[in-house]
């Protein structure tokens, strides 16, 4: 059995002083991938994908709207996952990851709402309708704000980590309930005034452009989160020798 050896090599990166240089090496690659994929996705979206038969050119907002909405939901789940790992395994890095994810998730959540509003105006005639999806997205943004505000308001990092983890998990349990309740409420109040569910038949190139943009959003998120986590690690580990060495190298203009 070589499993202890293997788990050791994998868990090695759960230690901040191993993770820090790894993140520094990986982040530029993810950022480059994000840039290349964004350019490719935009080219597919604007120059290859045909004009939509019913919506005209406005539908091209989809290439950021849908990836942003996916990311915002997925990032919250990943945040809750790292929070659970942190509470169960007591690893500091998990909490750092969940807190590094939150601002990017909130940003994508806002982007999904903003682009949804701008897409909604020409297609439904209003910037905002109290549709189930839009409303859930708005509540998700509030959940992000709550998490960020709570972790920032607590000065003791140990308490901030754990309190944030609890609220992330409580939120994750509530997200399906919120979605269900909002949908229920929506069918009672809105009736059939807005039918988002009638998915227009999408051309393959449209779908492809959307997927490429979604992967680009992934790469962007990973790069930004790794960079943000690096700063947080330095801050948290400032009493250790290895951070001292990193800082000395930075002070001499070297590369970490």
């Amino acid at each position: 059995m070589n499993s202890p050896e293997r788990s050791r090599s994998l868990f090695r990166f759960a230690a901040p002083h191993n993770f820090y240089p790894l993140a520094g090496r990986l982040a530029p690659w993810f950022a480059t991938a994000a840039l290349v994929l964004t350019v490719a996705g935009l080219w597919l979206g604007f120059f290859v994908a045909p004009t939509d038969a019913t919506q005209g050119e406005v539908y091209r907002v989809i290439f950021i709207h849908v990836p942003a909405a996916w990311m915002s939901m997925f990032v919250y789940l990943v945040m809750a996952f790292w929070s659970a790992v942190g509470l169960v395994m007591n690893t500091r890095l998990s909490f750092i990851m969940s807190q590094a994810l939150a601002p990017t998730g909130a940003m994508f959540c806002f982007v999904a709402l903003w682009t949804g509003a701008l897409w909604g105006k020409p297609t439904w005639g209003a910037y905002w309708v109290w549709d189930a999806r839009l409303t859930s997205q708005l509540l998700l943004l509030f959940l992000y704000f709550g998490f960020i505000a709570l972790t920032r308001a607590i000065e003791d990092p140990r308490r901030a980590d754990r309190a944030g983890a609890i609220i992330a998990l409580v939120g994750a349990v509530n997200v399906p309930i919120i979605y269900f309740s909002v949908q229920w409420w929506n069918t009672l109040h809105q009736g059939a005034s807005v039918s988002l569910n009638k998915a227009p038949s999408m051309a393959t190139t449209m779908l492809l452009g959307m997927l490429v943009m979604a992967i680009a959003a992934w790469m962007y998120t990973i790069a930004v989160v790794l960079w943000r986590a690096r700063s947080m690690i330095l801050e948290r580990e400032r009493h250790t020798e290895w951070v001292g060495a990193v800082l000395e190298r930075e002070a001499q203009g070297g590369r970490a």
Binding site: P4, S7, R8, F11, R12, A14, A15, P16, H17, M89, N90, T91, R92, D156, P157, R158, R236, E237, R238, H239, T240, E241, W242, G244
Partner: peptide, 20 residues
């Protein structure tokens, strides 16, 4: 005194690794 003076920074060798 910056080195390991305060408790909140934790030990340089984390618990995860020292267990194996």
């Amino acid at each position: 005194s910056a080195r390991g003076s305060a408790k909140e920074g934790g030990t340089p060798v984390p618990a995860m690794e020292s267990e194996t």
